[in-house]
């Protein structure tokens, strides 16, 4: 039970971490941009944008996965475009698993970042403007650094959501060993096979340890950036 990880377990952990990190890092700037627009701009269609961003949170994950398959599959409009122009296929690839995880994590990341952007006093941005900073520089000097705790909180929520992603992933990119079989999918696969209790238990322990490590790391990062009173848990 406490033996070092086997080669196949390492493969699952490494794939899960790669999928999750790519998902979080690629989604982060998009989520922050959406959070800023929703927090600071008033425009027609804002409610619709807000609703679309939150859809993955309320839809059954299988539905989100199916929509991704329709859009990014070989015959889907985006998938065909990516294949024709860049020669890239996403469906049934680990990159597709990252896309599914990113889409599922997006609403949680946007919510955390939006709260922290809304908490930045606009009067400080005004002060920066009167001191000679244009809109972009005032954003970089004031709004962005003051919303770092929200960015970290969003990243950790996104990490937690991504590493546990199951429904959209298995629907969109299937359950291919070494390519799309992430930790939750490997646990699910093990549960389907009799006599694999110990293998499944080992994967469950790995999942718990990974999630705990992420939480502890995020607490440390947030406290370091925002003072000892701040926390994400």
């Amino acid at each position: 039970m406490i033996a070092p990880l086997t080669a196949s377990e390492w493969e699952i952990v490494a794939l899960s971490l790669r999928v999750t990190l790519v998902a979080v890092l690629c989604t982060l700037p998009i989520a922050y941009g959406l959070a800023w627009v929703l927090a600071r701009r008033r425009f027609p269609g804002r409610f619709l944008l807000d609703a679309v961003v939150h859809l993955p949170l309320v839809l059954p994950p299988v539905v989100t996965g199916y929509v991704l398959l329709l859009l990014f599959g070989k015959t889907g409009p985006v998938g065909r475009f990516l294949n024709d122009v860049f020669g890239v296929a996403i469906a049934f690839q680990w990159t597709g698993a990252a896309l599914a995880a990113g889409v599922m994590a997006l609403p949680l990341m946007v919510r955390a970042m939006r709260l922290s952007i809304e908490a930045v006093d606009r009067k400080l941005v005004q002060a920066a403007r009167t001191l000679g900073a244009n809109r972009w520089r005032a954003f970089l000097a004031v709004t962005l650094p003051l919303s770092v705790p929200g960015i970290l909180a969003g990243a950790i929520l996104g990490f937690a959501r991504s590493i546990g992603e199951f429904g959209a992933t298995i629907t969109f990119v299937s359950n291919i060993p070494g390519e799309t079989r992430t930790l939750p999918l490997a646990i699910y696969t093990g549960l389907q096979i009799p006599g694999t209790d110990i293998a499944v238990a080992r994967l469950v322990v790995i999942a718990v340890l990974l999630s705990l490590a992420a939480l502890i790391l995020s607490e440390w990062l947030v406290r370091r950036s925002a003072g000892s009173d701040a926390h994400v848990i």
């Binding site: 006093d121 009067k123 400080l124 005004q126 002060a127 920066a128 403007r129 009167t130 001191l131 000679g132 900073a133 244009n134 520089r137 005032a138 000097a141 004031v142 003051l146």
Partner: peptide
């Protein structure tokens, strides 16, 4: 725009960057 006016504005509530 405000950043091009060359104004030194001391706000009543100071608005120092925290």
């Amino acid at each position: 725009p405000p950043d091009k006016r060359g104004c030194g504005y001391v706000f009543q509530d100071a608005r120092l960057f925290p």
